[in-house]
Design a protein around this nucleic acid. Structure first.
Lengths: 225, 225
DNA sequence: GCATCATTTTGCGTATACATTAATTTATCC
DNA sequence: GGATAAATTAATGTATACGCAAAATGATGC
């Protein structure tokens, strides 16, 4: 572990991080309402940074500000997940295409490779949490390599929503073995500089992931989470 | 014109709108810095709603909050415009595809058609401002018909950036005649329910628009605006 | 007993006050 | 004269105070 100066965050930043965590951990459950004053007290800070934090999180689609009713944590319907997956499919495919066009060296692709290896290991050990973490890392690396900062920002936002849904669905879906074959194939396409192949491989990958997830949600009657 | 109750906006909302306008009109020029207190005084309000507004606008990519230096209005480099166009190309093409899949009636496509007609008229009259307005309307309608609310939100954000660049480039570029042929062709594809054609037509359209704009920016040495 | 109106409470939006820290200026030392 | 350090200023981040409007509660009339 690296030694880092304890970077002092502003209270507003702390509020953003804390509220995000509370949402992801489910302590602020989807669909529930929470007053500014309640959140402020919970975090031991005043309403001002809480307000600023909620405004930002609202822009990010994690909650809704409803005057006098408190902020409502966004519930994710199946339609929401379909929307999110559609956006991710498009933008990550673009990133894959762009990444393949960049002519990255093996060294520059090391972190992508490393993410894939981590996923392999996690699957071998049947450790779903590790797999999910590595999967996040893979997708994050992919868009980083794509080099479009706006795509990165959007994908990060959308990935947040996927992560929320996945915390529910992770344990009721099959081991994502095929998923990893796709990732390797994509890695190869990027390494050999084949933009169109990279694009199509990832597009297919995301489509299948989308259908898998939507299928699960429907079968388990998880229309909202 | 419909009679509407003058909806009373909150001061924060007013601040967001005002600062946006000031940015679009160029009164807050790209690359310039502005203190919270300066903006507050300018708008005749306190710092609180200004802060909230700037935080939101920062999330939307229109400005950057730089502690102790004031907020900096984002300058758009050629790379920025390329990024924006890349995102728009992907997401609008998706919207076109989805719209074609919806099986909309002629009546439901009326506003799209109307936008195209407005563009035709504007071109005939060589009225570039009207053309730009109609073009915005067209793209807005297109993503609305696509039915993905996240795509709509993202495209709206990106369109803001295009609009800023366009206010500079509008008068130094050729009359967008070809552009309108594309729009008609897309309209037809959506009407007859041909998703793949709709997707490809719009993709091509956006690619060309992107190359046109980037070419202009380069030729005129407009690396930043 | 129910509806309507008055009253009270609550939560939010905004302003303001205050503390903190970065930037700037000034003074001092070599 | 230049550099360094102290002092001052300035801008932000945060807390608090306040007024208003919506919701909730209670009272009154029928």
């Amino acid at each position: 572990m690296t030694i880092e100066a304890a970077k002092q965050k502003s209270t507003t930043t702390h509020a953003v991080d804390s509220i995000r965590s509370l949402i992801f951990s489910g302590e602020l459950a989807a669909g529930t309402d929470h007053l500014e004053s309640e959140l402020a007290e919970r975090l031991g800070i005043s309403r001002t940074p809480v307000r600023e934090a909620t405004l930002m999180l609202a822009q990010q689609g994690l909650l809704e500000v409803r005057p006098r009713k408190g902020v409502r944590i966004c519930a994710l319907s199946v339609k929401d997940m379909e929307e999110v997956y559609a956006v991710l499919t498009e933008l990550e495919s673009l990133a894959a295409e762009d990444a393949a066009r960049m002519g990255y060296s093996t060294r520059e692709l090391a972190s992508l490779k490393s993410a894939i290896d981590s996923m392999d290991r996690a699957i071998a050990e049947q450790n779903l949490e590790d797999w999910a973490t590595a999967d996040d890392q893979f997708h994050h690396e992919l868009v980083r390599l794509g080099g479009n900062s706006r795509v990165q920002a959007i994908v990060t936002m959308m990935s947040d929503q996927v992560r929320r849904a996945r915390s529910i669905t992770l344990h009721i879906r099959p081991l994502p073995v095929k998923s990893n074959e796709d990732h390797r194939e994509l890695y190869e396409a990027i390494k050999r500089g084949d933009p169109l192949a990279a694009r199509e491989i990832h597009r297919r990958h995301r489509s299948q992931a989308r259908e898998l997830l939507v299928g699960i949600l429907h079968r388990h009657r998880l229309s909202f989470l």
